[in-house]
């Protein structure tokens, strides 16, 4: 999954990531994984973002 967004302030973007392919690898531009929370069926990714940012979710 690839998400691009523009923000004038920093914050946490939250993602749903299913567990079907295992543990995800999350990277991108102006974004840092803050927390990967394991939940039933998948993960909740908490990603610190700022400015024009991009988040990539791979496996």
């Amino acid at each position: 999954m690839k998400l691009k967004a523009s923000s004038g302030k920093a914050g946490i973007t939250k993602l749903w990531i299913n567990r079907r392919y295992g543990t995800p690898i999350i990277d991108g531009k102006n974004s840092t994984l803050d927390k990967l929370e394991s939940v039933e069926g998948g993960f909740i990714g908490h990603v610190k973002v700022d400015g024009d940012y991009e988040i990539n979710v791979n496996y």
Binding site: L3, K4, A5, I12, W16
Partner: peptide, 16 residues
């Protein structure tokens, strides 16, 4: 159940 954002900071421009 595909991967997706739940809460997006700022204005989303692209999701694929």
């Amino acid at each position: 159940s595909r991967n997706r954002p739940l809460a997006i900071v700022g204005k989303p421009r692209f999701l694929k």
